[in-house]
Design a protein around this nucleic acid. Structure first.
Lengths: 125, 125
DNA sequence: TCCGTTGTACGAGTTGAATCGTACTGCATG
DNA sequence: CATGCAGTACGATTCAACTCGTACAACGGA
């Protein structure tokens, strides 16, 4: 059983039941840096990941298989970690799976308009 | 700060009189790519350059001395070229100087909200 | 004409990112 | 317990970017 830590900076995008796995290490809201965030989003694959999370998320976080990305597993680990370490996503360990969601509230607070830019982006263009 | 030598103040974002030096090679509006633009803006120095252009531009373009950046000249050339090749700025040769301005209309058309993100950014944070 | 100014071009050194193979862990299920 | 599954960790390779020194070009003025 993964360690269950109470608390957690509430407000994810969804109402999450208490007793959730603690988020993996991530920067605090006030430590989010625009250049870093822009850098992590400058990769088309990661931009697609974030966009899909924003547009197609269900009422829960998503493991990386959900994205249907045609890359080796170790590459995906790399990109999801980059997104989390830049503060764009939050990851929690659910048993076997490590699931992600976008830190919508945090990003809107620090960089209003950024997420809108991502959802408006056309991955095909 | 150097006096304007050639023709009229241009305007870029302002109406441009004919007889202006042709812009250096740059991508067309429809070729602007969000990942590329975000990538070029992920450098704090370049982000500062663009922000200063957006907030403090006069009625004409600015040569790179105007920015007061404490870097070797060859480094500045590199960054200004990166901004232009990503489509963020336009550069024109005015005699000795190569002056830059932000492609405001183009960026607003392709990525609405992006420039606002830059002006709202605090370079010190 | 020589000099100072503005800036490019080129190349080297260094760093960091992206990519991916391989080996591994932890859990579930037969 | 053996297999399969989700995903990490580590290391190697490749490649692009940043940084900057140096050399050079174009122009204006004394």
């Amino acid at each position: 059983m993964p360690p269950i830590q109470d608390a957690a900076p509430a407000v994810t995008q969804f109402p999450e039941p208490p007793g959730l796995p603690a988020p993996l290490p991530e920067p605090a809201v006030e430590d989010l840096r625009l250049p870093t965030v822009l850098g992590v989003l400058s990769d088309p694959l990661r931009l697609r990941i974030v966009r899909k999370l924003l547009l197609e998320s269900e009422q829960f976080d998503h493991s990386c298989g959900w994205f249907g990305l045609d890359r080796p597993k170790s590459s995906l680990t790399h990109h999801f970690k980059a997104l989390r370490e830049a503060g764009v996503t939050r990851q929690r360990q659910y048993g076997l799976e490590r699931r992600s969601h976008v830190r919508i509230a945090d990003l809107d607070a620090r960089f209003p308009g950024l997420l809108n830019l991502i959802t408006a982006w056309d991955p095909e263009d």
